[in-house]
Structures are given as C-alpha cells and as structure tokens.
Amino acid sequence: MQSMTGFGRGEARNEHVEITVEVSSVNRKSLEVGVSLPRDWQSLERDITEAVRGCALRGKVSVYVQVRKGAQGGGLDWDDEKVLSTVRRLETFAHDHGMTIAPDGDLLLRVINSLDTGSELPEADAAKPLLMQAVGAALEGFAAMRTSEGEALKKDLLERLAFLEDQVVNMRAVAEEVVPTYREQLFARLQKAGLELELEDERVLKEICLFADRADISEELTRLSSHIEQFRATLEEEGAIGRKMDFLCQEIHREVNTSGSKANQIELTRIVIDCKNELERIREQAQNVE
C-alpha cells in the first residue's frame, strides 16, 4: 500500500555535466506526469515518463531536471545583460499583476539555465544514460517515501476500522432492545389513553409486528460488517486500491445511514453519528492512498 504523496532526489555526474533530478507528487484520481527538461533534451521526456509509470499508478507527479556544467566545463557561463533583463521583466510582470517577487539564488540559477547562454549540453542520446541514472535514484527515494507513508496510513486506517467494528457490535445490542422498548412504550400510551387493550390483543400484536419489520436492521448490519471486512482485506492488496477504498466508504456510509433511519432510537442515533464522523476521517485518509 502506497501513499500518493512522495519526494525523491537523485544525482549523477561526469566530467561534462552534473544532473540533479527531483520527483514529487500530490493527490490525483489518475496518473499525471509533468517533466521539466532543458530544451535540448526534450526528446527524453517520454523515457522519464515511462520510468515514472513504472513506480506510480496514481497522483500528479512532477519531475524537475537541473543540469550544471561539470568541473571541466569551466563552471556556469552566462550573459549578465540577458540575466538582468529577464529578472527585471519578471519583477515588472509581478508588479503589474499585484504579485511580489524576491529574486534569490534559486531563481537566478533557474533563469540562467533557461537562457541560451551559449553553454552547450551533450546531445540528448549521449546524455540519456546519465540522466536516467539520476532519474532512477530519484524514483527510488520517491517510491520509498510513498511506501513509508502508505504504511503509516494503513496503521491509521486499521485502527479506525476496528472502531467501526466495535460500533457495529454496539448497534446490534441496541437493535435487540428496539422492539421490546417500543412494545412497552406502546402499551404505556394505550393505558394513558384509557384503552383497555392487552399486549396479546391481535391489533396490538399486528402493530408491533409491523414496527419490528420496519425497524429490523439485521441485513444492514450484516452488509456493514462485510464492507468493513472487505475494506480491511483491500489494505493487503497490491496496486492502486484508493478507488476501491473510496467505493467501500460510500457503501459503508449507506448502510450506517439506513440503519439509523430504520431503527429510530436515540442510542442508535448516537452510534450512527460516531460512525459517520469516523467514516469521514477514513474517507479523507483514503484520498491519500494510491
């Protein structure tokens, strides 16, 4: 089980270039991959995307590739006027649109790398092995973090499922008292109204039977227990399980809601509210699962 959020960083270098790759992801219903590469290496975007697809099934994954000239390349080379002009244009744009911008070292480096500074990069085909080495290292850390967070989510979800299971037991106990309680209340109302009817009277028994049929939640509780067990089993499955978990949350909510509506009893209503609150927390956690 994996979380949809994660981060990984990888580096690779030779005598010509130093490559740093950062991979990060946030929640999405499907897999979206965005790759930021130097213009000369745009042809390698597909290779990076396929590598990401090999370790992620859902989420919005961003891959940022930063390239520096190696030790033998004489360091970074740039045109001062081009860099200054670009930064000033960014400041003007930000001001015109009501934003603020504070140029720092990271922004300057990005500007320098984005400009055609005359520093030649290796051809894409020649750079591919080194680039994919850095990508592989970044994805390894990325996958490890998603797995680690997934284990934490799993532990939390198991605890919450255990709470729901305890509440189902409580609901069964309360449900068993619903009909006897109604029978006593009915008889008390009949006596208060001055009606001389016994509990064994056919009309009274019919009314009690009709109420018992309407208030019976045994089927709902059976399905509820089944859904919770399926949810627990889903946590042990491989692959993308987030959508299945979301579906099971909907089914659990349906059965809990129906149980509260059919067996209109104060104690049961309290349990239903507790279940809904806990289920909402489960649903929020499930949104983070791949």
Rank of each mutant, 00 (worst) to 15 (best):
K128G: 04
R68A: 15
I208W: 00
R232Y: 07
A152H: 12
R189G: 11
V135N: 06
N264E: 05
D213Y: 06
N170V: 09
F247L: 13
L210K: 08
V21H: 01
L199Q: 14
P180A: 09
L31P: 00
M4D: 05
I241S: 06
L109K: 08
Q250T: 09
I228Y: 03
T269F: 02
L205Q: 14
L199T: 12
H253S: 15
A215W: 07
G6V: 01
V67K: 03
M245Y: 10
Q191G: 04
L109I: 00
I48N: 03
C55E: 10
K29R: 15
L108D: 00
D246M: 02
G141E: 04
L205Y: 06
K155W: 01
M132S: 12
T86R: 14
L57Y: 05
V179R: 10
G6K: 01
G98Y: 12
E176G: 11
K262C: 08
G54Y: 09
R254H: 14
L161N: 08
G8S: 08
R172V: 04
E278R: 05
F187S: 03
L164Y: 04
D201K: 11
R214Q: 14
I217Y: 05
E177I: 07
D47E: 15
L158T: 13
A143F: 02
D156P: 00
S24C: 09
S226R: 00
G105I: 10
R172K: 13
R89P: 02
D156E: 13
Q42A: 15
R110Q: 15
L235Y: 01
S148Y: 05
A102Q: 14
L190R: 08
I266W: 05
H97C: 11
V35P: 02
Q72D: 12
G6E: 08
L157P: 02
L195W: 10
V61F: 08
E196D: 15
E151A: 11
R9T: 11
I273S: 04
S226V: 05
L76T: 14
A173E: 13
